[in-house]
């Protein structure tokens, strides 16, 4: 998995997750949002909305089940940005 610090998107995703996370734990790429970081289902949706605001993308409903870890959130944002960049 791409280390989160490797690109700006990863670093920004990390920033958003840290801002919303209420547990004093290290946030890393394989951190599970619910089990490790204590997000409940509503907070997970709040995170998705925050990522949309941060990156100016819309996460389609069908992609949401794929976002279980911080790394997967970053991967989702990267692919949405790539899709938007395409003509």
């Amino acid at each position: 998995m791409t280390p989160l610090e490797a690109d700006q998107v990863g670093r920004d995703v990390l920033g958003v997750v840290r801002r919303l996370c209420r547990r004093p734990v290290d946030v890393v790429a394989h951190s599970k949002l619910q089990a490790d970081l204590g997000f409940d289902s509503l907070q997970t949706l709040e995170l998705v909305a925050a990522l949309e605001d941060e990156f100016g993308v819309t996460v389609p409903l069908e992609r949401m089940p794929q976002i279980q870890t911080v790394g997967e959130a970053a991967a989702c944002v990267r692919s949405l940005l790539a899709e938007n960049a395409r003509p």
């Binding site: 409940d40 289902s41 509503l42 949706l45 389609p60 409903l61 069908e62 949401m64 089940p65």
Partner: peptide
């Protein structure tokens, strides 16, 4: 489940989204 209303809503919608996909 934690918030069953919320949980059911989400899951339901996710299944729908998957079916749609």
């Amino acid at each position: 489940s934690r918030v069953r209303l919320v949980g059911h809503v989400m899951r339901t919608q996710l299944v729908y989204a998957r079916a749609h996909a």
